[in-house]
Amino acid sequence: MPANPKYLTSSKWQRFAKISAGILGGYLVCITFHLALCYWFNHVNVIITATFTGFILWATLLVLAFLAKNGWKIWGIYLLISLIFSIIIYLSKLYFPIQ
């Protein structure tokens, strides 16, 4: 049974925004999150754990991008979250440098 057309995205730009936000934006959030964790916990353990949790987080963010109505808002949210994690990484480098 095919999907109901009223629930499908008709705009090609919205489809592109959702796909790229899900793949690239989700990966960016996932990587910055795990890098931020590296400065607060033992970085070796975080990197080993990130091989499993990274895929789970990325897949979840990928699905969330397709559940939204506007792909550009998802891009904005993912970039904002990545910016917050990047600020945490920057502040952590100042106060807790890895030796």
Rank of each mutant, 00 (worst) to 15 (best):
C30Y: 06
A21I: 01
L79W: 14
W75S: 08
T49R: 05
L67S: 10
I74V: 06
W58D: 03
F52M: 12
A3R: 11
G26E: 13
P2G: 03
Q99Y: 15
I23T: 13
A50S: 03
I31G: 01
S11N: 06
L94M: 12
V46W: 07
Y90D: 03
T32L: 13
S20R: 08
I88T: 12
L94Y: 11
F66C: 00
H34Y: 10
G71I: 12
W75A: 05
K12G: 04
F96H: 13
L8Q: 07
K6L: 15
A65V: 02
L83M: 08
S11T: 04
Y95M: 11
G71R: 08
Y90E: 15
L62Q: 13
S11D: 14
K12H: 07
L35P: 01
G71K: 12
L64A: 11
F16T: 14
K6F: 13
L83Y: 10
F85R: 06
S10A: 13
S11W: 14
P2R: 07
L61V: 05
Q14Y: 09
A36F: 11
K93Q: 04
A65F: 04
L80T: 09
T51D: 07
S10F: 15
G71W: 06
L67T: 13
W13S: 07
L83P: 00
S20C: 00
I77S: 01
G22R: 04
P5M: 01
L91C: 14
H34T: 05
I56C: 07
S20W: 06
W13F: 12
N70V: 14
T49P: 00
L37C: 03
I47H: 04
N4Q: 09
W72N: 13
I87P: 09
L80P: 06
A50W: 06
V46R: 00
F96D: 07
F55Q: 09
L62P: 00
Q99D: 13
G22H: 02
M1E: 13
S82V: 01
Y27G: 01
S86R: 03
L8K: 09
C30F: 05
L94N: 04
T60D: 15
M1A: 10
L80V: 09
V44A: 00
I84A: 15
